[in-house]
Design a protein around this nucleic acid. Structure first.
Length: 639
RNA sequence: GCCGGAGUAGCUCAGUCGGUAGAGCAACUGAUUCGUAAUCAGUAGGUCGUGUGUUCGAUUCACAUCUCCGGCACCA
């Protein structure tokens, strides 16, 4: 005799076990039409689920986040159904929901073409319109294996073989299409309307590059056409922020075939770079670092000792001369250890904080290169702290402060923090790893920052905390990192003398705040969509004359602003003022200074903001103090 | 590295079912001196990513290769 409690605390008594859809129908016809699934005692279930005991019930529609997930998941099934209809020899594998959509992986002897995608999508529309009931049934594990083997679905059978014997599995059927799935699913394909197939790509079976490559079709699905259109518009807008596009448009940098994965910084991009570098230098000073500079290349022997050769040989660039092999440095840590090792170190010297804008070369796989985000020559805002064991917490904690402070100054408040633990390929004893992982976790917990665990993702010498920022399409890029290392100083024979005269191997904290300068600038460009705040903007103001007559006065203004240390450009061309404004606005210059006869006569300037606002006439002194005030805000104010 | 797509003027792109290519913007020249997002006219500009092959003839077809784009794997 279940009594069902609705979210508004209304109670519905039933005489016997009842299907969710029956309950929903008794609430109202409109709701019954919109219902996709339900939460019974907070567990997401199908509408066909039978409630036997007293329970709470919440009906899920496409308006709920869970409803959207169900919708997307069912759309993935619809995709598989359409593919099977058009390509009977295709085998289905998995089709999960992802952010903003779903994908489904298929095994097929040939590749899907973009044209195939169109016909598959049309088929999906056609199938959805048939308003198939989506039905659920359970099957024993062994029976399910046989079922999928018989239908030629070997990948599905393999998945089920990984499930413990004796378990029962749920299968979902719509028309003649059956798929193994945990569910829940929409009750009828008529709910699937607003979807679009986005792209086709290769993906390894079970995510392992030793396995066969499957064909993955990505799609997106929404509650209605309007939401779908809004999503597509959002993508279009995001593409306009692409740092590669803006890098060209704003004349910041370029890349070319002869140097894949390496950046040619143009004057404006390099100006931006230098401002960021100068900012970091101020922070290094504030946090008691010593900036150093170490060689670009070093004997292979050093890398063998440090462990890099064994772990990362593939990615290291090599060069040789006079029968000696050298590696171009992929990172600075072994070289910083060499600096630490010069002279005899005392426990009183610790913590010793060394920093370097280290130019590193890594032979990244060709398919991974991506604008500024993934390059083969990168500059880390690198640092290594040599510390005693009792200093771990204090130093790691200070690092978190530094990282969050810096990100805040650049206007990033959406930082994803990850703790990565021991990987398969590693050096060092398990007990040391235990200690290191616990230490980092404790620091995170005491700081009270939000973080997630990434098991197996640590560096080969120790666990790490990573800070990730998102690009305009929502892809995450690792920027800052804090890595605890109990291995490398010992491998490279570094030690200090403790209070009682013993030689002790220091612990090393590797850290980068921005990560790679290149990547950080890439994210920064997209974050601001090229509209850099005044302190970062390569050109802070452009001086535009209305006609030739004001050239001399404009030149004077230009000189005095330059003398103030401001980054200004002048545009004295014989062009209409509207044209000049357009050009400099497209260049996203924060302030335009308009000089006409009026300004010459009153010894003033007229100011226009990047957003098109007329800020009126003012003296040069007023303008410089305005810029100064705004620069002091860094990236924390308006952009 | 793997799967798929792409590479044509400085930029954005059109085009050639095999007969050596075109637009807009930019550049250059001239006219215009014009007050808040494009003044007008003219000129010049490309061995169609690279190599090899097929062909009377290749930017177009084939093969190889490089780079880029989207994923996957990787990411000290």
């Amino acid at each position: 005799m279940p009594t069902i409690t609705l979210p508004d605390n209304r109670q519905l008594p039933f005489d016997e076990p009842v299907r969710v859809e029956t309950v929903v129908a008794s609430i109202g016809a409109g709701l019954a039409k919109a219902a996709l699934a339900a939460k019974v005692n907070d567990v997401l279930v199908d509408l066909s689920y039978v409630i036997e005991q007293d329970a709470s019930l919440k009906v899920i529609t496409a308006k709920d986040p869970e409803g959207l997930e169900v919708l997307r998941h069912s759309t993935a099934h619809l995709l598989a159904q359409a593919v099977k209809a058009l390509f009977p020899s295709a085998q289905v594998t998995i089709g999960p929901v992802i952010e903003d959509g779903f994908y489904y992986d298929f095994a097929l002897e040939r590749s899907f073409t973009p044209e195939d995608l169109e016909s598959i999508e049309a088929k999906m529309q056609e199938l959805a319109a048939k308003e198939y009931e989506v039905t659920r049934r359970v099957m024993g594990r062994d029976e399910a294996i046989a079922f999928f083997r018989d239908s030629g679905e070997n990948y599905k059978a393999e998945i089920i073989e990984g499930i413990p014997a004796g378990e029962t599995l749920s299968l979902y059927q719509q028309g003649d299409f059956v798929d193994l799935c945990r569910g829940p699913h929409v009750p009828n394909t008529r709910h699937l309307k607003a979807f679009k197939l986005m792209k086709v790509a290769g993906a390894y079976w079970r995510g392992d590059s030793n396995n066969a490559m499957l064909q993955r079709i990505y799609g997106t699905a929404w509650a209605d056409e309007k939401a779908l259109a809004a999503y597509l518009y959002r993508l279009e807008e995001a593409e306009k922020r692409d740092h590669r596009k803006l890098g060209k448009l704003l004349d910041l940098f370029h890349t070319q075939e002869e140097a894949p994965g390496m950046i040619f910084w143009h004057a404006k991009g390099w100006q931006l770079y230098r401002v960021i570098e100068a900012y970091i230098r101020r922070k290094l000073h504030e946090y008691d670092y010593q900036e150093i500079r170490t060689p670009q290349i070093a004997d292979k022997i050093l890398w063998e000792k440090s462990g890099h050769w064994a772990q990362y040989r593939e990615e290291m660039w090599m060069t040789s001369t006079e029968n000696r092999d050298y590696a171009i440095k992929p990172m600075s840590c072994p070289l910083h250890v060499q600096v630490f090792k010069q002279g005899l170190r005392s426990y009183r010297d610790l913590p010793l904080r060394l920093a370097e804008f280290g130019s590193c070369h890594r032979n990244e796989a060709s398919g991974t290169l991506h604008g500024l985000m993934r390059v083969r020559q990168l500059t880390q805002d690198d640092g290594h702290l040599f510390i005693r064991e009792d200093q771990i917490e204090a130093e790691a904690s200070k690092l978190l402060d530094l990282v969050y402070e810096v990100y805040h100054d650049f206007g990033f408040d959406d930082v994803h923090c990850r703790l990565s633990t021991r990987p398969d390929k590693r050096v060092g004893e398990e007990a040391v790893w235990d200690k290191a992982e616990i230490a980092l976790q404790q620091v995170l917990e005491r700081k009270g920052v939000q973080w997630t665990l990434q098991p197996g993702d640590g560096a080969f010498y120790g666990p790490k905390i990573d800070f990730k920022l998102r690009d305009c399409l929502g892809r995450e890029w690792q920027c800052g990192t804090v890595q605890l290392d109990f291995q490398m100083p010992g491998r490279l024979e570094a030690y200090y003398i403790d209070e009682v005269g013993n030689k002790v191997v220091p612990i090393m904290l590797h850290r980068a705040v921005l990560g790679s300068m290149e990547r950080f600038i890439g994210v920064l460009i997209e974050h601001f969509a090229g509209k850099f705040p005044v302190w970062l903007a390569p050109v802070q103001a452009s001086i535009l004359t209305v006609s030739d007559k004001q050239a001399e006065y404009a030149q004077k203004i230009y000189e005095s602003l330059k003398k103030e240390g401001l980054r200004v450009e002048k545009d004295l061309r014989n062009e209409k003022i509207g044209f000049k404004i357009r050009e400099h606005t497209l260049q996203k210059v924060p302030y335009l200074i308009i000089i006409g006869d009026k300004e010459v006569n009153s010894s003033q300037i007229t100011l226009r903001s990047r957003s098109g606002e007329d800020l009126g006439a003012m003296s040069l002194a007023d303008f410089t103090s305005l810029l100064e005030k705004e620069s002091a805000l860094l990236g924390r104010g308006k952009s």
